[in-house]
Design a protein around this nucleic acid. Structure first.
Lengths: 224, 224
DNA sequence: CAATTAATCGATCGATCGATTAATTTTGGG
DNA sequence: CCCAAAATTAATCGATCGATCGATTAATTG
C-alpha cells in the first residue's frame, strides 16, 4: 500500500505535558511486572515487554528502578507489603476469637483468592531464588509471619483444643499446603477437576479445609 | 603458577572411540537439564551451561534434540515416564490393600522424597507453561493419574470408610498439597522451621500426613 | 581399502537482551 | 521571564543468546 503509511504522530522525546506522571509510571511498571513475572518468570520476560505493558519505554525501568533487577525487587517489596499488612490486620482485628483456627483459615484462603497469582509468584521466588534473594525473603516475610502461627498452634495445643502430640511445624506446613495448592495448580487441574477460582470456590475450599484440617476425612461413629 | 597450566587432554572432534556414547550424551544432557532447569528455570539457564554440565558442546543439543526447547521437552518426557511408572507399580502391587489410603500417602511421599526436585519442576511447568505445553501436561499426566485417585476415594466413601459428604475433588487437592508443599518450600522454610529433606523427615511427614488427613488435628474425648 | 556415516568440535551467525546515552520538552522556582 | 532540574523518547551499545555451519575424526560398510 504505497502512500498509506501511517504518520504515527511521532512522539518526540521530552517531558510530557503535566498530568500526574512520575509516581504513576512507577506504579504502572510495578503492576505490569507483577502480572508478567508471576505468569512467566523473571528470565522469560524482557524489559521491552514490561515497558510496553506499562505504556512506557524501556529506559524508564533503568531511570526509576536502576534496571530489571531493581524493578523485580521493587515489585516483590510491593507484594510483601500488602501481605504483611493483611496479617497485621488479622492480628489486630481479633484479639481473642473463640475459634482462631477457623478464622485463620477463612482469612488465609480469602486473601489468596483475592489475588490468586501471588502464590505462584512467591513460590517461584522461593524455588528459583539464589542465596541472597532467599535470605531477603526469609527476613522480610517468613520470620515475621511464622512465629505468630506457631504461637497460635502452641496455644491451641495447651488449651486442649488440639492433640498434644501434634507437631506444630508439620501442622503449619500441612495447612499452608492445603490452602495454597489448589490455586497453584489451577491452570492445569482446573480443567481436569472442573473448578474455577471464583468466590464460590474459595468459600467451599475454606469450609472443606477447615473441616478436614480439624476433623479429618474419616467417617466416625454415628453417635458422638 | 607459570608452566603448570593443565594440558587438559584436548578433545579433538570426531567419532569417539567406540564405547557406547550417543545414548550416553543424550542421557547426560537430559540429566543436566533436569537439575539446572528445575533449580533455576528454563529462561535462566543457557544451552552453554547445560552443555558444559553434561560435558559436551552446545552444538550437541541441536544435534540430538533439535534445540533448547527440544531438550526441555525430552527432559519432561523423561520425568513423566518415571512418575507414571511409579504409579503403575503402585496400582499393580496392591490389588486390594486393607488400608489403601495409608499405602497411597506413604508411597506418594516416598516417591517425592526420593527426587525432591520433581515437584518444583512440575509446578514450574504447570504455572509457566503456555497453552500447548499445558495441554501436553494434562494429556500425558493428569488425565492418567487422576481417575485412579478419584476412583479410590469414591470407593472408600462407598465402603463407609470416609465421610459421605466429602468432595473427592477437594480431598485430592488437599492431600496432594499437604504432601508436596513441604518439599516445595524447603529451600526457604527448611531453615526457618528447622527440617531437612532426609528419609527420617519423609517418614515423619508421611505419618503426620496420614494421621492428619484421616483424623484431623482436633483433640477428642479420651474414651473413644 | 575406499566410501560413507555418526559424532563431535570450534567458530560464527543474526537476534535479542539489558543498559546507556543524547536529544528534547515541560515544569517550577527565583 | 529565564533557566536548572525533571522526565521522557529514540537510538544505540556491548554482551549474550540459541542456532547453525564447516571441518574433523573414528567407526562401519561394501
Amino acid at each position: 500500500m504505497p502512500g498509506t503509511k501511517r504518520k504515527q504522530a511521532l512522539r518526540r522525546p521530552g517531558r510530557p505535558p503535566a498530568g500526574k506522571a512520575a509516581e504513576d509510571v512507577r506504579r504502572e511498571l510495578v503492576e505490569a511486572a507483577k502480572q508478567l513475572f508471576a505468569a512467566r518468570g523473571f528470565g522469560e520476560v524482557g524489559i521491552r515487554e514490561v515497558a510496553r505493558a506499562a505504556g512506557v519505554t524501556p529506559g524508564m525501568i533503568s531511570y526509576y528502578f536502576g534496571g530489571k533487577q531493581g524493578l523485580y525487587e521493587a515489585m516483590l517489596d510491593d507484594v510483601f507489603e500488602g501481605l504483611i499488612a493483611r496479617v497485621r490486620e488479622l492480628g489486630a482485628a481479633s484479639p481473642r476469637t473463640t475459634a482462631p483456627l477457623e478464622a485463620l483459615i477463612q482469612m488465609y484462603i480469602a486473601t489468596i483468592s483475592s489475588q490468586p497469582w501471588v502464590p505462584a509468584l512467591l513460590l517461584r521466588e522461593v524455588v528459583t531464588a539464589g542465596p541472597a534473594a532467599r535470605a531477603r525473603f526469609v527476613e522480610r516475610f517468613a520470620r515475621r509471619g511464622l512465629p505468630l502461627l506457631q504461637a497460635l498452634f502452641a496455644s491451641e495445643v495447651q488449651s486442649g483444643a488440639l492433640r498434644a502430640e501434634l507437631e506444630p511445624r508439620l501442622a503449619v506446613l500441612s495447612l499452608a499446603g492445603m490452602s495454597v495448592f489448589p490455586f497453584l495448580v489451577h491452570p492445569v487441574m482446573g480443567k481436569v477437576l472442573g473448578y474455577e477460582l471464583d468466590d464460590a470456590f474459595a468459600k467451599r475450599l475454606a469450609d472443606h479445609t477447615t473441616r478436614l484440617f480439624l476433623d479429618g476425612v474419616r467417617r466416625r461413629a454415628e453417635a458422638s
